[in-house]
């Protein structure tokens, strides 16, 4: 397939051992609603790919399949060498330690304070961690998003943008190897959006993480994308850099770059 080839061409420099996510012929439907059809995708180490597509095109479904929250109808999803649909619960859990997930809805636990929210992902390590360590990780994560003062607040006391940043801090706290961001900047003002986008780039550089970013905030896309994959009609329509796609005459593409 054309798009498949172009992905490989773009990543000539990387060899296959650097391949962290590889999706082949992914299919997913809900009843009659065929959301993903023959979707193919590759993510190499240190890369940051933006998935672009209109609302309801199946972007959230795609990332939920990658993290194992949704079970695909067909196809393979290799994450760090393991095929997600084949894994049992414990194996899946071991992969999930290395994969961070930012929910589109933030999914902050609203019965817990910000501190407890951030400590929650650390629970899997509690046996090995002491209080000091936990505390310093929490403070570091909050520092990253510039919200140290909210530590004892409840999520309901925060603004929408602050909630998004706390959710981001919670995703980053375990320093995952792969991070899936589902619309990290949607609904934020341009300044905060730029800050968050820069943070995503910083994290990627600092910890050499690989990321899949879902976004239709072009400001954010421009900052974070090494490459853009367009999701149209349930499949990977085209894959290229921001600069190239910007020049495109194809209406399906250019309508995003206005």
């Amino acid at each position: 397939m054309n798009t498949e080839l172009s992905i490989q061409n773009d990543s000539n420099s990387s060899n296959t051992s650097d391949l962290v996510v590889c999706i082949r012929n992914l299919e997913k439907s809900f009843g009659e609603n065929h959301v993903l059809k023959n979707f193919n995708f590759k993510l190499y180490k240190g890369e940051s790919i933006v998935v672009l597509g209109k609302s309801g095109s199946g972007k959230s479904v795609l990332v939920k399949c990658i993290i194992g929250l949704l079970y695909p109808d067909a196809g393979t999803i290799q994450v760090l060498g393991k095929n997600i649909p084949d894994l049992n619960h414990d194996e899946l859990d071991r992969i999930r330690v290395k994969v961070g997930f930012l929910f589109q809805s933030n999914a902050l636990y609203d019965s817990m304070t910000v501190r407890e929210n951030l400590e929650f992902p650390l629970r899997r390590h509690w046996i090995k961690m002491d209080k000091e360590e936990v505390n310093s990780l929490v403070m570091e994560a909050l520092g990253n998003v510039g919200l140290e003062e909210t530590i004892d607040m409840m999520p309901s006391e925060l603004s929408g943008g602050m909630r998004k940043r706390i959710a981001l801090a919670r995703t980053l706290i375990l320093k995952p190897e792969i991070i899936l961001y589902d619309e990290p900047t949607t609904g934020l003002d341009p300044i905060t959006s730029t800050e968050i986008s820069n943070l995503i780039v910083d994290v990627q550089k600092k910890y050499n993480t690989s990321s899949i970013v879902i976004s239709h905030d072009m400001n954010c896309v421009k900052i974070v994308a090494n490459k853009i994959v367009m999701l149209v009609d349930g499949t990977n329509y085209i894959s290229d850099t921001y600069k190239e796609l910007q020049k495109s005459k194809d209406i399906k593409i250019s309508s995003f770059f206005k």
């Binding site: 939920k64 993290i67 929910f103 636990y109």
Partner: peptide, 8 residues
């Protein structure tokens, strides 16, 4: 779902 992915 968030609990699920964070290993609890």
């Amino acid at each position: 779902d968030a609990m699920e992915v964070s290993g609890t």
